[in-house]
Simulated assay, not measured.
Amino acid sequence: MIVVDGHEKTIDIKSFQNLEQILLKVMEDSYMNDRIVTDVLVNKENFSEIYPHQAEDIPSSEVESIEIVTMGTTEMAVNITRELYKVVTIMDTGAHQVATLFRQADDAEALDMLQDLLDVTRDFFGMVGVLRDEFTLREHKPFTAAIEELSNLFTEMLDVMGNEDWILLSDLLEYEYVPAVQRWKNIIAKLREEIRDVQ
């Protein structure tokens, strides 16, 4: 039995050699256009490949049932913008905390938090990249300008870290990074509206 988003498919599992062939057949359905697979359950257990083409190594004789859960790309993009808003708030708060710790000469704690802030910023760039690619936002001037501004600041911060100039880094965080991050709140809100209008 194969179920996609609660609807049973008339595909005979046993007519395929392995799980990968079955999944490829399901993906050929026009329903899957503009949809992103969020979960795959094989025999009622979560399945995700540990190595490429692992599904090819699972013979169809071992497959009793497949359940696939998907989400529309537009819905996914709206969810990403919601997450981005949360991430921007974390970046804003984190930058203030790091700057304060450096000014208090608590370098060890500040450096620890700074590493977390850099990781969150990298994740932010990753999420923004997914949005840009899925919705061809290269032509979106405020979006592109905001990415460039934050990217340049990120590079400058890394250079200042290399010189271990923590006071300059604090100033960069408070007076340039935080305002740049706060500008993203409006951009994200506008993006969410534009993505919803595409539906």
Rank of each mutant, 00 (worst) to 15 (best):
D119M: 08
P179M: 08
S30Y: 05
I66P: 04
Y51H: 11
E164N: 12
T73Q: 06
E174H: 10
E8C: 03
F125N: 05
D12V: 13
D112W: 12
H140M: 12
D5N: 09
L114I: 06
E56Q: 11
L158F: 10
A146C: 05
E83H: 14
L131Q: 04
D165W: 06
Q115N: 13
E62V: 08
P52V: 03
E75L: 11
Q115E: 12
V160P: 02
M71Q: 11
Q104L: 15
V87F: 09
E83T: 14
L117R: 00
S151R: 09
A105W: 08
F143Y: 09
E109L: 12
D133L: 14
E49N: 07
M1F: 07
L84Y: 01
M27L: 13
M27N: 10
K190Y: 08
V40W: 01
T136H: 15
H7P: 00
V198L: 09
V4N: 03
T93W: 03
I58S: 08
A55H: 06
R138F: 12
I68D: 02
H7N: 13
D123A: 10
N163Q: 15
L101F: 07
K190P: 01
F102V: 08
G72L: 09
A99M: 05
L84W: 01
V63C: 10
I2P: 01
F135D: 08
A189T: 14
R192E: 09
R183G: 08
I80T: 08
H96P: 06
R82C: 09
I36T: 09
G126V: 11
R122N: 13
A55R: 03
T81F: 01
I80E: 02
M161Y: 02
D112R: 14
D106W: 00
Y85R: 10
F125A: 04
L172Y: 10
E149C: 10
L41E: 07
L41F: 12
L114G: 01
V63Q: 00
V120D: 04
N186I: 12
E148P: 12
E64T: 13
A55Q: 03
V42P: 00
F125P: 03
V130R: 07
T38P: 00
L173T: 04
G162N: 15
M113S: 05
L137V: 05
R103V: 08
T10V: 11
I147G: 00
R103M: 14
I50Q: 15
G94A: 07
Q97M: 15
Q182P: 07
I2T: 06
D12F: 07
E83Y: 13
V69H: 15
I13T: 06
T155G: 11
V160Y: 01
L153S: 01
Q54H: 05
A110E: 00
Y175L: 13
I66V: 11
F47N: 01
N18H: 12
R82L: 10
